[in-house]
Design a protein around this nucleic acid. Sequence first.
RNA 1: GGUUCGGUAGCUCAGCUGGAUAGAGCGUCAUCCUUCUAAGAUGAGGGCCAUUGGUUCGAAUCCAAUCCGAAUCACCA
Length: 589
Amino acid sequence: MQLIQNLKQATADAIQSIYQVQIKSEQVLVNATKPEIEGDYTIVLFAFVKQLGKSPDELGNALGEAVMAKMPGTITAFNIVKGFLNFTISDQFWLDYIQATDANKLVTPTANPKKIMVEYSSPNTNKPLHLGHLRNNFLGWSIAEILKLQGNDVVKTCIVNDRGIHICKSMIAWQLFASGATPESTNMKGDHFVGDYYVKYNDAYKAEMETLIAGGMTKEIAEQEAPIQKAAQAMLLKWEQGDAETMDLWKRMNEWVYAGFDVTYKKIGSDFFKTYYESNTYLLGKDLVDQGLSKKVFYQKEDSSVWIDLTSEGLDEKIVRRKDGTSVYITQDIGLAELKQKEFNTDASIYVVGDEQNYHFKVLKLICQKLQLPASDGIYHLSYGMVELPTGKMKSREGTVVDADDLVDGMIQIAKEKTESLGKVDDFTAAQLEKLYDTIGLGALKFFLLRVDPKKKMIFNPEESIDFHGFTGPFIQYTHARIKSILRKTGTTVKQVGTSLLPLEKALAMQLANFSAEVNEAAEALDPSKLAIYAFNLAKLFNSFYAELSIANAESEDKKNLRIQLGILTAATLKQAMQVLGIEVPEQM
RNA sequence: GGUUCGGUAGCUCAGCUGGAUAGAGCGUCAUCCUUCUAAGAUGAGGGCCAUUGGUUCGAAUCCAAUCCGAAUCACCA
């Protein structure tokens, strides 16, 4: 849809030819005209009034005439109200647009596609996924799909945090308390099974501390001296030494967790082209430290630890290698960044990670740039806000974590009850019903988490179930199903779409024409909520249209054709917008 | 204390590259199913856009200060 762009260009050209002043087309602001005022698109004149030294009316008339002359057949009229120049677009323009648009090609691909990596999910293998992971997964997946839709080559990756002291805690607890139990023997999902032992560890740790403190020890010393804590540390050491028994247990328990994750990922529709394991990558970046030293990006302190001084960037000093020669989190991330770039030759790399790590990624990018690693300017931290409960932050120790599997199952259950109570799908088979409940339940959940600005923290109230009315996934799914239901009756063969447009028909066409631009904006801002809002507005507009105008029983054959085509385009656009949000739209519900 | 992010209707959020009377959804109240799916539509009510000052023809939007909240400033990941 080039109309707005053309309007800007024509305005800029008109200013150039009338006043001999160079204006870039991007400087021209085009808005949708307020409903009460005659016209479709509005140009704000004030921006140029001062620069050109003309009165708004004089300028508006001159520009109006000139732009109209440049776009014959497209613009039929203009008017000026209080410094706003309003253009009316001809019905024929929209009719041509409606007739010519291909429902299978709604988005024009970008002229310069890039190779972009999106890393998201990053689970720990000591506990199951929770609500926060869901926001991360939905966001990451959706961003990747939006970038793909825009025409980029996108690689989805996941880095699994599968090593470290927290994993050893689950392992120790399993050794101490499980008496050989397995997910199979207890009939549990593997990630939940292992997660339970992580909880058991913390319970035991707490109990041991209390005993020690009651015996006269201070809290600080007790924290160090608790036997289970010492055992976990000893196990980490053994792991690092490659002790066979420890490695076996570690592999075995991680396999349980992965089996559990697979089920969840499959259910929520997450997928990765490549998974990195921290156990393979945690030693990366060591050579880069040496390189950095010789490039004088890093410096060494007396105790031989290696640092970078970022005070000139307004940050602090940051250690990149301990005095004992071992590396830290940031070091392996630098190494991994280099590895990923080399492996996939990426132009850009997007990390979907919570905003608590803003500082870390700022430092990471700076260091990569200073080391002059390829494509380090393309490192981007997609920082999203935490999901909080009305009672505050989720805390696993206090049992206030909303489990991902529970939440998903709960949503599907609600979808089932709701659907059954409406009784509109009696002709569905059991398998179709199952599928429909999944679609609606997950649709509600995904939409709920994606409809807000990723940057902002959000509040989730488990007491109030997620709504199915209004600004929700099911509302849009319903609108889609409704259109499909009509199209099943009317057929989808469209001939002549007529010669005139009613206001609602025109409004719908205008909204449809915005889709491609919305996709670009969402991609630019890495913000799926823009498309969620767009889809909602489109659905709402269609529902008003639906309430007002009949499709199957339209007043003429032309009108019927026109509205069928609008229905086809609306359904396709809703489907496409929802698809990149990871939400399916049913044919019937 | 430094840095970053946020504060818009009772609640959850849009709007923030300055533009016409600040918008949705939920909740509340009222209307609309013998006519294409009421998970819908229509209307009412609800606001000192945290505060104060500044820039501007024009500020929710930009700047400064203040107040409130969060994150971070780890040789954890």
